[in-house]
Amino acid sequence: MNKVVKDAREAIKGIEDGMTLMVGGFGLSGIPENCISALVESGVKDLTCISNNAGVDDFGLGLLLKKHQIKKMISSYVGENAEFERQLLNGELEVELIPQGTLAERCLAGGAGIPAFFVPAGYGTEVAEGKEVREFNGKPHLLENALTADYAIVKAWKGDTHGNLIYRYTANNFNQPMATAGKITIAEVEELVEAGELDPMQIHTPGIFVQRIFKSTNYEKRIERITER
């Protein structure tokens, strides 16, 4: 079993216009920089991107937005991006906003074969529009559907040839749940080792969820807000 592909360009083969992608990361932390660059280069368009955030103007998913490759964003928070705002106000971009925990759980459910579930978040708000409400333990809950994607693209710290993944610090975030919910899951990693070299007790994402893995070459790892003592 060897899931290793050469580079980002090879990893994203098969991603076509109009497809739905999950893209891991929180803010700019733990985003699959190399695959995003390859997608920009490929020119693929009309994408629906499920990602907690939408990057900034000149980094992360902002790069795809700038080239009008994204048709719809499904996110919890899309601030910090002026181009996003411009496209949204001009009607060039659709956006669906989802409470962050519900978004994470919808990805997890998609990967785990749970078609829908009830959560309290969003009851009584515009998020509840059109959704079934049911009371559990005296509290109203909304029925939320699972999310899956044609491709899930995640970034991990270490990975092996079987696709087992370990994330670093808070760069785990949406990568772990999203890795489970792609029909094809692509992982880009900073360190790629032979199967057997990672401690099986430390694996976050078991290789069964990952179809393609590659060692990425360079990471900018841009920091959105450097704060120091």
Binding site: F26, G27, L28, S29, G30, N52, E80, Q100, G101, T102, L103, A104, E105, C107, L108, W157, Y167, R168, Y169, T170, A171, N172, N173, F174, N175, Q176, P177, H204, K221, R222, I223, E224, R225, I226, T227, E228
Partner: peptide, 30 residues
């Protein structure tokens, strides 16, 4: 010492204290 992989919900760089832990977003909202 700022690390791009170690941020808070406001996207500011932070640190972790002894006894702390990391987990994914679904576990966090769980």
């Amino acid at each position: 010492k700022a690390d791009a992989d170690l941020i808070n919900a406001g996207k500011q760089t932070v640190t972790i204290l002894p006894g702390g832990s990391f987990f994914d977003s679904a576990a966090s909202f769980g």
